[in-house]
Design a protein around this nucleic acid. Structure first.
Lengths: 301, 301
DNA sequence: GTAGTGATATGCATAAATGCATGAATTGGG
DNA sequence: CCCAATTCATGCATTTATGCATATCACTAC
């Protein structure tokens, strides 16, 4: 039989709890294994071991997908709480750490990650060779409280209370298109001309239309025949002459083959906020990266 | 060097946190290892690994004993919270478990554990063979919230809010001494006579004197020339004729060679409270033991 | 229906953690 | 002042957990 070192629920493996949480949130052992950076058999076995040592069935194996038992659901509440505390431990530990080594995670839009971050990160790497910079390129907002990133570069002011945010720059953006495309369709003189051309969608098309309409450009869904949630892909579509889109001037300036549309139009303005957890800001390695990012991003004003 | 699978403090081993907690509370790796039922090298290595993966020094090794770093102290707050949540998980899991198997921990005074519990536990064992009953014989009050026991038998009403308590009996106690001792010093007729004899201390002598004084027996510390914190030892001392002590009548009745002193004196009365966590009370295996204990202990009224 | 996708479970080789035995160092007591 | 008793650190053998490859199963789409 088994060895049953810890009969009953007195002492259980805390790591197995984390496997359970990931499985419950992702819906399968395989998906949980991916986030935990472990293998599917491992996660499956850990959850099974937890079930055994707790004496409770957490999931119903109905062949296809796992369903949370009512007992599992009740436990999940506490398990989430435990994970929250674990995150707080992680944050507090980092804030206490005064060494300039270890990992720092920066999250930013994919466009900024590709076009603006690399040279800055190269500088940081030279300043602090033992620092490991991890860029999380994502257009959805990552949660700093849950430690999905240490530092976030955002274009909206964060609302959460425990976060500190610094407005480092006010960036300008204009309409851009490939010169080849404009040669073909002609260069618009007015915003009404503009509304007759093709646009390349960027993330959520609906909100983009709303934004443009409120800026006085009467575009509709008809204008958006191509697009991508991934900013870089959308920008490449623009570069290959598939239409017009709004882009930060800095990025556009380093992209050959595109030119500004309605050059005299007043620019769109958007803020660049640098964000981190207030506790993390006391950690030397975080502060170093934060301050250097602030300094360098200020140049893109 | 090391392999550093998880650089930075993003992902750390939750079990290592428990090792840290035990070490911080017990003051040494060895002591922590005893509580965790692990070896001292393991605990030491786990804490070292945690320090490494968190990038923080938790303890100062000053040769003799470990001292918590300020960083460690700050982390300890959150770590305790994490352990609390883990306990809640344990309790909730048990409350959800409807199988009559696994461990049930009962805590009681050592005297009760030795003289009264064994036959009851034997009955339970026959009723539920797959149940593992663990008796924690301790005269200090064990914490049910921290899951040091599932069911506690106490002589004071518990005050904590999440506990449910059942008054199962009102037991009687008298003065007892070995017949051989009374043959030697004579059988006292009054309480003043009594106060001239030797008493055997039971736990804290000061509170015992206070108790006897308020009962009208003018004893002083002079009367207590022997004693033991361990009730069974004290009772054995009584049985061997080293003096007088108060004892529950049931226990005294099954001890040959002792007889009641001042037999007509009205008995001391003390309550027997059965206590468990309110959530645990819904678990079938806990309920079974709880109810059977209540039923059997009622006979000792 | 039938092939294809994505999931869970199992056997087996490997990697990692654990425990034991031991040495070094420190404290407390005679 | 030295001896006894603890404590932490390290080398080594063993146990334990992990990952890979694979078989099996359920569901989807054509």
């Amino acid at each position: 039989m088994h060895k049953c070192m810890n009969w009953g629920a007195i002492n259980f493996d805390w790591n197995q709890v984390r496997s359970f949480l990931a499985t419950a949130e992702k819906g399968s052992f395989s998906a949980a294994a991916r986030v935990l950076e472990q293998s599917q058999p491992t996660v499956g076995r850990q959850v099974a071991a937890l079930e055994h040592s707790l004496g409770v069935t957490l999931f119903e194996r109905v062949g296809k997908s796992l369903n949370l038992t009512s007992a599992g659901e009740e436990l999940l509440v506490h398990v989430r709480e435990m994970a929250d505390v674990a995150n707080r431990i992680s944050i507090t530990a980092t804030s206490q750490s005064n060494t300039i080594e270890g990992q720092v995670r920066i999250t930013a839009s994919d466009v900024m990650s590709v076009y603006q971050l690399p040279p800055i990160i190269k500088q940081i790497r030279e300043m602090a060779p033992r620092l490991e910079i991890d860029v999380v390129a994502a257009n959805d907002l990552r949660d700093i409280q849950r430690r999905e990133a240490d530092i976030a570069i955002r274009h909206v002011r964060p609302t959460q209370p425990d976060l500190i945010a610094k407005l480092v720059a006010e960036a300008n953006a204009h309409f851009y298109a490939a010169s080849s495309y404009l040669d073909q369709v002609g260069r618009p003189k007015t915003e009404e001309d503009l509304a007759k051309l093709d646009f390349v969608g960027f993330g959520d098309v609906t909100t983009m239309i709303g934004l443009l309409n409120s800026a006085g450009i009467p575009v509709t869904a008809q204008n958006f025949r191509t697009g991508s949630k991934t900013g870089i892909v959308a920008w490449e579509l623009v570069r290959h002459g598939l239409g017009i889109s709004v882009m930060a001037d800095d990025v556009a300036a380093m992209t050959p083959g595109v030119e500004r549309v309605l050059p005299s139009r007043e620019p769109f303005k958007f803020p660049i906020w640098l964000t981190t957890h207030s506790e993390l800001h006391t950690a030397r390695r975080i502060r170093l990266v934060f301050d250097h990012l602030a300094k360098q991003l200020r140049n893109y004003a």
